[in-house]
């Protein structure tokens, strides 16, 4: 699985500078594809590790949650200072991207239960594996998009300083960094775990 993580790192940041909306769209699809790929991979290799199988109710709930999350992200982005009407489509795309990067993995791997989500965030140590990866990626994607807002007010007059390009880059970059981190972190954690099991 690790190879894919490293591969995906190059996918995002290349495509967005000139046309923001299209770029974000590409990012979204890339994120989706990546998540689905992972999901299928895991489903194939270790079907037991997933809590519940495919159930239509669950999928519907997931979709509901995703839409809700997307809406929330949109509202939050506006609250943080995104223009209300002027670039609504850009904001919406940014929200979708964040949903894909942050919430989609959760939905895929842990189902629609909010309790499970919190579990991942709080008891990071209890499970090693998927949870850690998801935890790292979503957290760093959020952090990345937060940091991405920093260059916007600067007076460099660069085209990428338009909202939301730098934030999108930040989100994707953060996501990739999260993947990288978990790729570094997981083997070490595994080795320590195995050691402790050894004793």
């Amino acid at each position: 699985g690790l190879l894919i993580y490293l591969l995906i790192k190059n996918e995002g940041p290349f495509s967005i500078t000139s046309n923001p909306v299209n770029g974000v769209k590409i990012c979204i699809t890339a994120g989706c594809v990546h998540c689905l790929l992972n999901f299928i991979l895991f489903y194939v290799y270790a079907p037991n590790s997933l809590e519940s199988g495919f159930r239509i109710v669950n999928i519907a709930k997931c979709c509901c949650l995703l839409v809700l999350a997307c809406f929330t992200f949109h509202v939050i982005a506006i609250c943080f200072g995104a223009p209300l009407i002027k670039s609504a489509t850009e904001t919406l795309h940014f929200a979708i991207l964040l949903t894909v990067l942050v919430c989609l993995p959760f939905c895929l791997f842990f189902g629609p239960s909010i309790e499970n989500w919190f579990e991942v965030f709080i008891d990071k140590s209890s499970h090693v594996g998927l949870e850690t990866v998801v935890y790292f990626t979503s957290l760093s994607a959020l952090l990345g998009s937060w940091l991405g807002a920093i260059p916007i007010p600067l007076d460099w007059d660069q085209p990428w300083q338009e909202w939301p390009i730098s934030c999108v880059v930040g989100a994707v970059g953060g996501y990739s960094v999260g993947l990288l981190l978990s790729a570094v972190y997981l083997p070490r954690k595994y080795s320590t775990l195995h050691k402790s099991k050894f004793f």
Binding site: I76, C79, F80, G81, W146, A149, P153, L154, D155
Partner: peptide
């Protein structure tokens, strides 16, 4: 220390505040 941040300080402080609330 940055003139452009001072110029947009109103937006930047709001950004900070929202972050803290979250």
């Amino acid at each position: 220390f940055s003139n452009s941040f001072i110029v947009y300080e109103n937006a930047v402080t709001m950004f900070f505040m929202q972050t803290l609330i979250v």
